[in-house]
Protein backbone atom coordinates (compact mmCIF):
# COMPACT_ATOMS: atom_id res chain seq x y z
CA UNK A 1 0.00 0.00 0.00
CA UNK A 2 1.48 3.29 -1.11
CA UNK A 3 1.46 6.03 1.49
CA UNK A 4 -0.30 9.03 0.05
CA UNK A 5 1.22 12.24 1.42
CA UNK A 6 -1.09 15.14 2.23
CA UNK A 7 -2.04 17.27 -0.75
CA UNK A 8 0.14 20.25 0.09
CA UNK A 9 3.21 18.16 0.53
CA UNK A 10 2.46 16.15 -2.60
CA UNK A 11 2.15 19.35 -4.62
CA UNK A 12 5.51 20.51 -3.33
CA UNK A 13 7.17 17.21 -4.23
CA UNK A 14 5.63 17.37 -7.68
CA UNK A 15 6.84 20.90 -8.20
CA UNK A 16 10.35 20.01 -7.07
CA UNK A 17 10.68 17.04 -9.43
CA UNK A 18 9.29 19.12 -12.21
CA UNK A 19 11.73 21.98 -11.62
CA UNK A 20 14.60 19.52 -11.70
CA UNK A 21 13.49 18.18 -15.05
CA UNK A 22 12.93 21.67 -16.45
CA UNK A 23 16.44 22.67 -15.41
CA UNK A 24 17.83 19.58 -17.08
CA UNK A 25 15.92 20.37 -20.28
CA UNK A 26 17.31 23.90 -20.33
CA UNK A 27 20.82 22.55 -19.84
CA UNK A 28 20.35 20.13 -22.77
CA UNK A 29 19.15 22.94 -25.01
CA UNK A 30 22.01 25.24 -24.00
CA UNK A 31 24.45 22.43 -24.68
CA UNK A 32 23.10 22.00 -28.20
CA UNK A 33 23.35 25.69 -29.01
CA UNK A 34 26.83 25.95 -27.54
CA UNK A 35 27.96 22.93 -29.53
CA UNK A 36 26.85 24.61 -32.76
CA UNK A 37 28.73 27.78 -31.85
CA UNK A 38 31.91 25.96 -30.81
CA UNK A 39 32.01 23.82 -33.93
CA UNK A 40 31.62 27.03 -35.89
CA UNK A 41 34.57 28.60 -34.12
CA UNK A 42 36.58 25.50 -35.04
CA UNK A 43 36.26 26.48 -38.71
CA UNK A 44 34.01 23.57 -39.51
CA UNK A 45 31.36 23.89 -42.21
CA UNK A 46 29.66 27.24 -41.95
CA UNK A 47 27.00 28.85 -44.08
CA UNK A 48 28.38 31.17 -46.69
CA UNK A 49 29.62 34.43 -45.21
CA UNK A 50 28.23 36.95 -47.66
CA UNK A 51 25.06 37.45 -49.65
CA UNK A 52 25.88 38.16 -53.30
CA UNK A 53 23.38 38.95 -56.02
CA UNK A 54 23.59 38.62 -59.78
CA UNK A 55 21.38 39.26 -62.81
CA UNK A 56 20.03 35.78 -63.53
CA UNK A 57 18.66 36.43 -67.00
CA UNK A 58 21.98 37.84 -68.25
CA UNK A 59 24.43 35.31 -66.88
CA UNK A 60 25.47 34.45 -70.43
CA UNK A 61 26.23 38.05 -71.36
CA UNK A 62 28.73 39.22 -68.76
CA UNK A 63 30.09 38.50 -65.32
CA UNK A 64 31.76 35.48 -63.84
CA UNK A 65 29.23 32.92 -65.09
CA UNK A 66 29.73 33.48 -68.82
CA UNK A 67 30.31 30.27 -70.74
CA UNK A 68 34.04 30.70 -71.15
CA UNK A 69 34.51 31.19 -67.43
CA UNK A 70 32.67 28.08 -66.23
CA UNK A 71 34.62 25.12 -64.91
CA UNK A 72 37.64 24.74 -62.72
CA UNK A 73 40.13 27.60 -62.40
CA UNK A 74 43.44 27.55 -60.57
CA UNK A 75 43.93 30.70 -58.53
CA UNK A 76 47.29 32.46 -58.10
CA UNK A 77 47.48 31.25 -54.47
CA UNK A 78 47.16 27.62 -55.56
CA UNK A 79 43.57 27.22 -54.44
CA UNK A 80 40.91 26.22 -56.91
CA UNK A 81 37.63 27.92 -57.85
CA UNK A 82 34.92 25.95 -59.59
CA UNK A 83 32.16 27.93 -61.28
CA UNK A 84 29.00 26.19 -62.40
CA UNK A 85 25.43 26.88 -63.47
CA UNK A 86 22.41 24.78 -62.60
CA UNK A 87 19.57 25.30 -65.07
CA UNK A 88 16.49 23.48 -66.32
CA UNK A 89 17.64 20.63 -66.60
CA UNK A 90 21.38 20.33 -66.46
CA UNK A 91 24.49 21.53 -64.78
CA UNK A 92 27.19 23.27 -66.77
CA UNK A 93 29.79 21.84 -66.76
CA UNK A 94 28.03 18.53 -66.26
CA UNK A 95 31.17 16.97 -64.85
CA UNK A 96 33.28 19.02 -62.46
CA UNK A 97 36.98 18.25 -62.18
CA UNK A 98 38.71 18.94 -58.87
CA UNK A 99 42.03 17.99 -57.26
CA UNK A 100 42.57 16.33 -53.89
CA UNK A 101 44.12 18.14 -50.91
CA UNK A 102 43.42 21.60 -52.25
CA UNK A 103 41.18 24.33 -50.88
CA UNK A 104 38.28 24.57 -53.29
CA UNK A 105 35.57 27.19 -53.61
CA UNK A 106 32.43 26.23 -55.48
CA UNK A 107 30.58 29.22 -56.89
CA UNK A 108 27.30 28.49 -58.59
CA UNK A 109 24.00 30.07 -59.50
CA UNK A 110 20.88 29.52 -61.58
CA UNK A 111 19.61 31.43 -64.63
CA UNK A 112 16.01 30.24 -64.24
CA UNK A 113 14.46 28.55 -61.18
CA UNK A 114 15.60 27.23 -57.82
CA UNK A 115 17.91 24.23 -58.06
CA UNK A 116 19.96 22.27 -55.56
CA UNK A 117 23.65 21.53 -55.59
CA UNK A 118 24.50 18.34 -53.73
CA UNK A 119 27.68 16.31 -54.06
CA UNK A 120 26.74 12.82 -52.91
CA UNK A 121 28.99 11.32 -50.26
CA UNK A 122 30.19 14.72 -49.03
CA UNK A 123 28.69 17.51 -46.97
CA UNK A 124 28.76 19.86 -49.95
CA UNK A 125 25.18 20.95 -50.30
CA UNK A 126 23.62 24.29 -51.16
CA UNK A 127 20.66 25.87 -52.87
CA UNK A 128 20.98 27.66 -56.18
CA UNK A 129 18.50 30.51 -56.06
CA UNK A 130 18.25 32.61 -59.22
CA UNK A 131 19.43 36.13 -58.55
CA UNK A 132 21.90 35.04 -55.88
CA UNK A 133 25.34 33.44 -55.97
CA UNK A 134 25.98 30.37 -53.84
CA UNK A 135 29.52 29.97 -52.63
CA UNK A 136 30.90 27.10 -50.54
CA UNK A 137 34.35 26.02 -49.53
CA UNK A 138 35.43 22.42 -49.56
CA UNK A 139 38.36 20.10 -49.63
CA UNK A 140 38.55 16.52 -50.95
CA UNK A 141 40.96 14.07 -49.41
CA UNK A 142 40.37 11.08 -51.69
CA UNK A 143 40.22 10.71 -55.46
CA UNK A 144 37.03 9.26 -56.84
CA UNK A 145 33.78 10.05 -58.59
CA UNK A 146 30.67 11.51 -56.98
CA UNK A 147 27.15 11.95 -58.29
CA UNK A 148 25.82 15.49 -58.21
CA UNK A 149 22.01 15.54 -58.47
CA UNK A 150 19.80 18.59 -58.32
CA UNK A 151 18.10 18.18 -54.94
CA UNK A 152 15.22 20.63 -55.35
CA UNK A 153 12.18 20.28 -57.57
CA UNK A 154 12.86 22.50 -60.59
CA UNK A 155 10.20 21.46 -63.08
CA UNK A 156 9.07 18.46 -65.08
CA UNK A 157 12.60 17.42 -66.06
CA UNK A 158 13.94 17.50 -62.50
CA UNK A 159 14.49 13.73 -62.42
CA UNK A 160 16.94 14.06 -65.31
CA UNK A 161 19.19 16.62 -63.65
CA UNK A 162 22.25 14.72 -62.56
CA UNK A 163 25.89 15.72 -62.95
CA UNK A 164 29.14 14.25 -61.69
CA UNK A 165 32.21 15.38 -59.82
CA UNK A 166 35.54 13.79 -60.56
CA UNK A 167 38.20 14.12 -57.89
CA UNK A 168 41.71 13.41 -59.17
CA UNK A 169 45.08 13.29 -57.53
CA UNK A 170 46.59 16.71 -56.98
CA UNK A 171 49.76 15.94 -58.97
CA UNK A 172 47.77 14.72 -61.96
CA UNK A 173 45.54 17.76 -61.75
CA UNK A 174 48.55 20.08 -61.75
CA UNK A 175 49.90 18.33 -64.84
CA UNK A 176 46.54 18.55 -66.62
CA UNK A 177 45.94 22.15 -65.72
CA UNK A 178 49.19 23.46 -67.19
CA UNK A 179 48.37 26.15 -69.70
CA UNK A 180 44.59 25.79 -69.33
CA UNK A 181 42.35 28.62 -68.22
CA UNK A 182 39.26 26.60 -67.27
CA UNK A 183 38.81 22.86 -66.97
CA UNK A 184 36.13 20.20 -66.70
CA UNK A 185 36.21 16.40 -66.96
CA UNK A 186 36.30 16.79 -70.73
CA UNK A 187 39.88 18.15 -70.49
Amino acid sequence: MTVVPPADESAQVAARVERRWATMSIVIVLLLATAAALIGLQHATMPQGRVETIDAARLHLSGEFVESNLGTAVEPDGSVTVRAIGQQYSFVPDCLLVPTDTPITFRATSPDVVHGFLIVGTNINTMLVPGYVASIRARFSNPGEHLMPCQEFCGVGHEGMWARVKVIDKAEFTRLSAGKRRMSCAD
Binding site: G49, V51, E52, H60, L61, S62, E64, V133
Partner: peptide, 26 residues
Protein backbone atom coordinates in the same frame (compact mmCIF):
# COMPACT_ATOMS: atom_id res chain seq x y z
CA UNK B 1 27.11 43.62 -42.19
CA UNK B 2 28.25 40.42 -43.85
CA UNK B 3 26.50 38.29 -41.23
CA UNK B 4 23.33 40.31 -41.61
CA UNK B 5 23.44 39.49 -45.30
CA UNK B 6 23.93 43.02 -46.62
CA UNK B 7 24.01 42.40 -50.35
CA UNK B 8 27.27 42.71 -52.20
CA UNK B 9 27.55 42.29 -55.95
CA UNK B 10 30.43 40.25 -57.32
CA UNK B 11 32.53 42.33 -59.66
CA UNK B 12 31.90 41.39 -63.28
CA UNK B 13 35.66 41.23 -63.72
CA UNK B 14 35.59 38.47 -66.31
CA UNK B 15 34.87 39.99 -69.68
CA UNK B 16 35.81 37.07 -71.87
CA UNK B 17 35.15 37.34 -75.59
CA UNK B 18 31.67 36.06 -76.30
CA UNK B 19 30.82 34.10 -79.39
CA UNK B 20 27.45 32.89 -78.13
CA UNK B 21 23.97 34.30 -78.21
CA UNK B 22 23.16 37.74 -76.86
CA UNK B 23 19.42 37.23 -76.70
CA UNK B 24 17.73 37.47 -73.31
CA UNK B 25 14.55 35.43 -73.14
CA UNK B 26 11.62 36.76 -71.11
Amino acid sequence: CSAAGVVSRPSPAVEAPQKGTTVVMT
